[in-house]
Each structure stands twice: as C-alpha cells, then as structure tokens.
Simulated scan of single mutants.
Amino acid sequence: MNKIIDKVALIHIKNNCVLSTLSQSKNKLYFPGGKRENNESDIECLKREILEELNVHILENTVKFFGSFEAQADGHEPGVLVRMLCYFSDFSGTLKASNEVESFEWIKYEDRYRTSAVDILILEELKKQHLID
C-alpha cells in the first residue's frame, strides 16, 4: 500500500507569477504550506503554516479551493506519495521568510524544473488555466 503524505498549500499569484519558497537545507522550491497537525482543518493548517513560514495572515474570506494534486514525494522512497490540497488566498502583512523557510520568490512556469514533482503538476495546471506565464 502506498503511503500518502497529506499537505495543504497556498497558491498565491501576482503579476502572472506564483509565490514559492526555499527551505533551509533544500535545493528545490516548494509552494508554502505543510502537513496538518492534530486533525486541523485545511484552512487551520494553511493559516498556521503560512504564518510560521512567511509571517503573514491568511484572509479567510478570500480562501478558495484550487485542486488536489498527487505525485511521488520528494526525498522519499518510491511509492511514497504527497497529496497537496491547494488553495488560493490573499493575506495581510508583509512577506518575511521565517522558521524553516530561507527565502521566497515569485516563479513562472519555466521555473518548474526547480520544484518538486507535485509542484510541477500544479504549475502545469496554473499554466493551462492561463493564471501564470
């Protein structure tokens, strides 16, 4: 049986680019977010993770489900999958990398090979819907 890592991610688009993060000791970009704790809802997880990683507050009334994506988990043995539940959202505050996040940047579709397998799927869908360049 495949093991599935359950994650929630923020998809935030500005100027046809999407927000991505670089974690300490990692060489790939990842969409901000993470694993849920203690039976959190998707939104609770998203709010906590984004505050921890980027020091901004998710505006709950702007949260909109984008999709669920599944792929081989980065850095795990074959057959371990990650399932990312992705949400669009606005936030308040000024982005500031914190906790395990070293930096953040705005990426385009052409940057997809710098990301994880599941993020590539998400970037492909964003491109298909003409949401990013």
Rank of each mutant, 00 (worst) to 15 (best):
V82E: 14
E105T: 08
L126T: 07
K127V: 01
E40K: 13
S116P: 08
N61V: 04
E102V: 00
C86F: 03
A73Y: 01
A9N: 11
A9D: 07
E52M: 09
K3N: 12
C86V: 02
A73C: 03
S41P: 06
R112Y: 12
L59Y: 12
Q72P: 02
A117G: 06
K108N: 11
V82N: 11
E110A: 12
D6C: 06
E40D: 15
G34S: 13
I122C: 03
L19T: 03
N39K: 13
S89G: 05
K3Q: 13
L131W: 04
E53G: 08
S103Q: 01
N55V: 01
L95V: 01
N16S: 14
L131Q: 07
I50F: 02
L46P: 10
F91T: 01
E49G: 05
S68E: 13
R112P: 06
L126M: 07
E52H: 10
E124G: 10
G75I: 03
K28S: 10
G67C: 04
T94E: 09
A117E: 11
Y113H: 13
Y87K: 06
V118T: 07
R114E: 09
E53I: 02
T115P: 04
A71V: 08
E105R: 14
E102K: 09
G93P: 04
F91R: 00
I120Q: 07
S68P: 05
S89C: 05
Y109I: 00
E100M: 06
I13R: 07
S68N: 11
Q72S: 07
V63L: 04
S103R: 01
K64N: 15
K14I: 10
I5C: 10
R112D: 04
S116Y: 08
L54T: 00
V18L: 01
E60Y: 08
L29I: 03
M84I: 12
H57L: 13
T21Y: 08
E60V: 10
K26E: 14
K35Y: 11
V118K: 01
W106Q: 03
T115Q: 04
P32S: 11
W106K: 02
T62A: 10
E53L: 05
H57V: 14
L46C: 10
V80L: 04
L22A: 05
L59V: 15
D6F: 08
Q24R: 15
K14W: 11
E40G: 14
S41C: 06
